[in-house]
Amino acid sequence: MEIKSIYENKKQFLDLLLLADEQESMIDKYLERGDLFALYDNGLKSVCVVTQESEDVCELKNIATYEKWHGNGYGSKLLHHIFLHYKGKYTTMVVGTGDSPWILRFYEKNGFRISHRVKNFFIDNYDHPMFDGGIQLVDMIYLSKVL
């Protein structure tokens, strides 16, 4: 297994990034200013993007693993890599996600704790209704982790 930092041609990972954030115009808001990491294990399995939000806080803007590789620990391995990468540079990492039980469990299992909620985020910021597991995403749930 290898995790690489990607500095150029970040859009080559768009198909995978769209699995976690299905509107390209939203990805365009953070992709170039963010750090992109790609996890390979006999081919590309998972990617994530992290942005600086303040002097002390970074944000995990996107993390995605190809669906056929879900449950193999690739997302968690990628998270642990970025925790170590940013430890000492930032004090806190935050992530915003939809109100989906399986996604919230994933983040909580990896040390994040629910911080706050932004009402109607998905309705106000996306050009189409978003669903996860048949449930429409409405509010953005923010979680944080001390690094």
Rank of each mutant, 00 (worst) to 15 (best):
I103F: 10
A64G: 11
L60V: 13
F121E: 12
F13P: 04
Y66A: 01
Q136H: 07
I6N: 09
H70Q: 02
V146R: 14
G73R: 06
I103K: 14
D15I: 02
L143C: 12
S144D: 14
M140P: 08
K119I: 12
E53R: 13
G43C: 06
I135E: 08
V49I: 13
S25D: 13
D124H: 11
G73V: 04
G98A: 10
A20D: 06
A20Y: 11
K68C: 00
K10V: 08
E32R: 12
A38R: 10
D132I: 11
L79G: 06
E22I: 01
E55S: 15
A20W: 02
T97Q: 02
S115G: 03
K109W: 03
V94A: 04
T92H: 12
G96W: 11
T92V: 14
K87I: 00
D21Q: 06
E24C: 10
S54T: 15
Y90M: 10
D132E: 15
M130A: 07
I82H: 05
E22K: 02
L44Y: 04
L44Q: 11
V95A: 10
K68I: 06
D127K: 06
K145W: 07
Y86V: 06
V49W: 10
K29A: 05
E108Q: 15
R113V: 15
E2S: 13
P101F: 09
T92A: 05
K109C: 04
Y30S: 11
E59L: 02
I103R: 11
K11L: 08
S144G: 01
Y66N: 00
K29V: 03
Y142H: 14
S115P: 01
G96I: 11
G98M: 08
D28R: 09
I82F: 13
I6F: 09
V118H: 12
D124S: 12
H70S: 03
G34L: 07
W102N: 13
S46G: 00
K10L: 00
V49K: 03
G43A: 06
E55Y: 12
L78I: 04
